[in-house]
Design a binder for these strands. Structure first.
Lengths: 345, 345
DNA sequence: GACAGCCATGGGAGCGCTCCCAGACGTGAT
DNA sequence: ATCACGTCTGGGAGCGCTCCCATGGCTGTC
């Protein structure tokens, strides 16, 4: 036989049952009020809300999750390398956006850093058992099996960035091509004629986009493509340094460089200094990311800003919509980039 | 009357009940195995483990949380300003440590950014209702009421850093005094005689510690204190810049500066350049934090490294211990800092 | 004025787990 | 053999919620 109902929950907090008792209604009604069901009269609703306020009632998440078979939590998954490499503005920017968007829902953010395949597998299993309502995937590499795995399991999922031009998994991206164009147009607009670029690794889609943007801007301006002005980097400072040296040897007369990352711009800047070029007088420099590094460089670096916080927000909105309404018809959302002009160009 | 037991849980995943059936034991026994209770015979344990493996069973968190009255989740609370200001290495370093420490438990990390008092209140309420087992508080300011609020509610809690010398809330700190000493000793050891410092805001405990370290190092070396060599900053680049200018005006002969943050060192470096001083030849420069900024400065900045990842780990260990065993007898843990020597000194 | 139809409402059943008690089975001492 | 333990085990009860069905009061209609 059921024990007599107690006056409070196990840890001394009021339960829905007590709220019901105090408001003089049934449990179902309180539940309806809490969940915003329209099928409650205004009178009753007011009484229940009063009781909730009086008691300081807060729904018990676990109980709700168990009964309703949802978790009211989403996970944000970040390959650990990213927190190291792109600590800022990437990771914290996105996080800020996600958090802001979640602030007035009562959905929780679970953060998972993944550093090994074992951890990836573990997370996949975890997600598979519906312990989260959806997943936000940050900075996915082309060869990461996780997105497809999750998609296959039918777990709502949004990535930032895409792995290829024909990405099927819903994602939010920023306009890398447009950003690169902006940068190169700006350089051209300042009268620079020998505009070089230092690219990211060719197997990363984002790097290819930025290179495409560079090419497109030159084409649009009617300049001929000089392949000797394209230096290859891998987004690291060191690669920017060596690419810049090679560029300078091949084309000593170049007067501007668009780097596909701020980190490479730092390396390039060092090479320029070593080879006796001043910035921006001899060579104008533009980066990509608008990181803290760019702001604090000497001279401060002109850079393409990605709306990281906006991407975080957009990803979150997209995920919540997907959780509520099922897969979107258009899986892709592209946010504009912006050029932040500083003294380096 | 209870419905006949089904073959699987609601979302098609096996339940503990099915594991029990397959292993030919009762629910209680499976629960015991899962929770590592010793009161299970080896035979039975093996059978249950086999059944778990066969079925791919994963416990349902919400059900477990509800029944056991714990959440298997801890929250990491970060004032939003911090993700902006100290993006790196602070925040991501700690996060990496926390995540690493949690990796082989099945405790989840909930991340909460707090930007308004309203959100703080909301979080306090949330935590109060035992929706998390414990809280990690990052970068707390002296006037933040949250720590005491949580402590009062009996919620296991660990902060990083302390608000004052007699902090009562359990916390993990790094050796700011020792780090500053290290920096100044290093400067002295390189033959510098006029060692200045630029401090953080006087109302921040961490800033006072670094100043104490500076003083202590001078004292230990038998140098007299010259108050004119102490510049006041507030951890920002701009404050470093103006403090450096003033120092240079007051004491043109100074030949070294210990800055209590890398950001201030960047400002100081700019001022030095403007006033025609070279680094490190005329003036040696040392920062604090060992941020990405320091590594990429020109010349690269010698800086005091705080073991952020280690602090994250230590905080997590301390919190888990507190959850398991109750409040620690010694609330404080201090981790050593380390000097990273680069070309600026 | 009777009946269908609608709406707000109460509360039983059940989500998947843990807790704990009572029972079944040893074992060693008497 | 009997008894007193101790160990291992099964399963009832219950965690706090949501879902859903049945109920009862009202309205509108012919």
């Amino acid at each position: 036989m059921a024990m007599a109902r107690r006056g409070t929950g196990r840890d001394g907090r009021p339960t829905l049952e007590q709220v019901a008792a105090r408001a003089g209604v049934g449990r179902g009604t309180v539940s309806r009020v809490i969940n915003g069901s329209p099928r409650v009269s205004d009178r009753t609703r007011a009484a229940v809300e009063q009781a909730i306020a009086d008691l300081g009632y807060v729904p018990h998440r676990a109980a709700r999750a168990l009964a309703a078979n949802r978790s009211d939590a989403i996970a944000m998954v970040v390959p650990e390398a990213e927190t190291r490499l792109f600590a800022e503005p990437y990771f914290s920017g996105i996080l800020r956006g996600v958090s802001a968007e979640l602030a007035d829902t009562d959905i929780q953010l679970l953060l998972t850093l993944i550093r090994t395949p074992k951890e990836r597998a573990r997370f996949a299993q975890y997600a598979a058992s519906h312990r989260v309502d959806g997943v936000l995937l940050v900075s996915v590499h082309g060869d990461d099996p996780l997105p497809d795995q999750l998609a296959e399991m039918g777990i709502p999922l949004v990535m930032n960035g895409r792995r290829s031009a024909d990405e099927l998994v819903p994602h939010v991206d920023c306009d890398n091509i447009g950003g690169a164009q902006l940068a190169v147009e700006h350089l051209l607009g300042r009268g620079r004629t020998g505009v070089a670029t230092i690219t990211g690794p060719a197997d990363m889609y984002v790097a290819r986009c930025r290179l495409d943007g560079y090419r497109e801007a030159l084409r649009a301006a009617g300049r001929k493509q000089d392949e000797e002005l394209v230096g290859r980097g891998d987004f690291t400072e060191e690669s920017g340094h060596s690419a810049m040296r090679e560029l300078l040897i091949r084309r000593p007369g170049l007067d501007a460089v668009f780097c596909a990352s701020d980190l490479m711009a730092i390396g390039a800047r060092r090479a320029l200094r070593e080879m006796g070029r001043s910035v921006p007088d001899d060579v104008a420099l533009v980066g990509f990311d608008d990181s803290a590094l760019a702001r604090h460089m000497d001279p401060p670096l002109t850079s393409v800003r990605q709306p990281m916080e906006g991407m975080g927000r957009a990803m979150t909105r997209a995920l919540l919509a997907e959780i509520a309404d099922g897969p979107p018809e258009r899986p892709r959302l592209v946010l504009p980039t912006e050029l932040v002009r500083r003294a380096s160009s």
